[in-house]
Simulated scan of single mutants.
Amino acid sequence: MPASVIVDALWGDSGKGKACAYLSRKHDAALAVRAGIGTNAGASVTLESGELIKARQLPTGWLNPGTRVAVGSGVLVDPRIFASELDRFGIADRAMVDLRCAVITEDHIAAEQGDDHLLERVGSTCTGNGHARADFILRRARQARDLPELEPYLADVAAEANRIAATDDQLVIIESSQGTMLSLALSDDYPYTTSGNCTTAAALNDVGLNWRHLTDVIMVVKAMPTRVGHGPLPYELSAAEVERRGIAEYGVNTGRLRRKAAALDHDLLRYAAMLNGPTQIALTFGDHLDPRLRGARTTAAIGPEVRTVIAEVEASTGAPVTLLDTGPRLADMIELG
């Protein structure tokens, strides 16, 4: 089991962080690597104790004590957020950042927060990622190896990921960010996109992992999709209806109310599957679809509505649903198949 990629089918906020933590524990993964743009998106996991873990820079695989974590070279690093997560999670002894990562500065953040196009039209999080990425492309950004405070954590993450993935008994998990339909060059929703692609291929590239090591693509599909910021959202519910149903969600990074859809758009889901090539599907937020499922951990709890959605998702993606998320806690998961 050399390497698995966790990727979002639609617009993000689907529970990739929970899937990464769950699979890291299940398989005692040797390494979890963060792919994606940078700190413009967050992940959250609720532990059995009720403690809520929020992260923006490092993958949540560290919730397995034996898993090392890293930031891939294609990911932007904000040294302040990186340092904060090392301290909050107590993982300085098993965290790495690729020496080639471009760095987000205070100037990048200030430039985005003063950019009306990004703030008002696009609905960006304005966390400096777009401007830092632009500077990297123009070859004027600083890199992680240029900052003394990052020196203890510098590594060639691509070399380490490929070394581990070349073994037969250790697993590398790559946690992507955001969602396929936010991809800069693949979404029809431009300019309501992020500043790069969010697909399986993009995640491999962000980490520098040889595609021959890839054995599984776990595509996360949110049963009732959400979207933050502007851009189309098929089957969108009103904010009042979302509140009435008790299924309101708020962004990890921004705290903004997530727009929420009543159902999946299967044309988009088929397109996402074409782009990502999933071998497995993790269907998340099943309890928002059927509140009776909340917290369930056995297949006996799955009702007809959710079973119908599982069958529809499998038909649209051509991949089996192997994980069903049933609630906020890390162990609120049903394994299928």
Rank of each mutant, 00 (worst) to 15 (best):
A19N: 07
A158K: 03
A166P: 04
T105N: 04
M96I: 06
R145S: 06
G327L: 08
T167V: 00
K54C: 15
L214R: 00
E312P: 02
L10E: 09
T46S: 07
A158R: 08
P59R: 12
V172C: 08
G130H: 05
T67A: 13
N197H: 06
A300T: 13
E85R: 14
P278C: 04
E48D: 14
Y153W: 09
N197W: 07
A161P: 06
Y271W: 13
A161F: 04
Y250I: 05
T125L: 04
R307A: 15
H117V: 02
L119C: 11
A203Y: 01
R94K: 12
I137V: 11
A273N: 10
L58K: 07
G123M: 03
M1V: 07
Q113Y: 03
R145L: 09
E312M: 05
R88A: 15
P152T: 09
K260M: 15
E112C: 10
V321N: 05
R227V: 06
A248I: 08
A9C: 11
D156W: 00
G295S: 11
V221F: 02
G66F: 06
P304N: 07
L23G: 01
G251H: 11
L237W: 08
Q280E: 15
G61D: 01
I6L: 10
K54R: 15
L293M: 04
T200C: 11
C198E: 13
T199C: 03
R145E: 11
E175S: 07
C20Y: 08
M333W: 02
I53L: 10
E175Q: 09
G90D: 13
R68M: 10
A261M: 11
I310N: 04
S84C: 13
A155E: 14
A29Y: 08
A21G: 12
A301D: 08
G246S: 06
L118T: 06
E106F: 00
A202Y: 07
G318K: 11
L214A: 02
A29V: 13
L52N: 12
E241C: 00
S44N: 14
L171V: 04
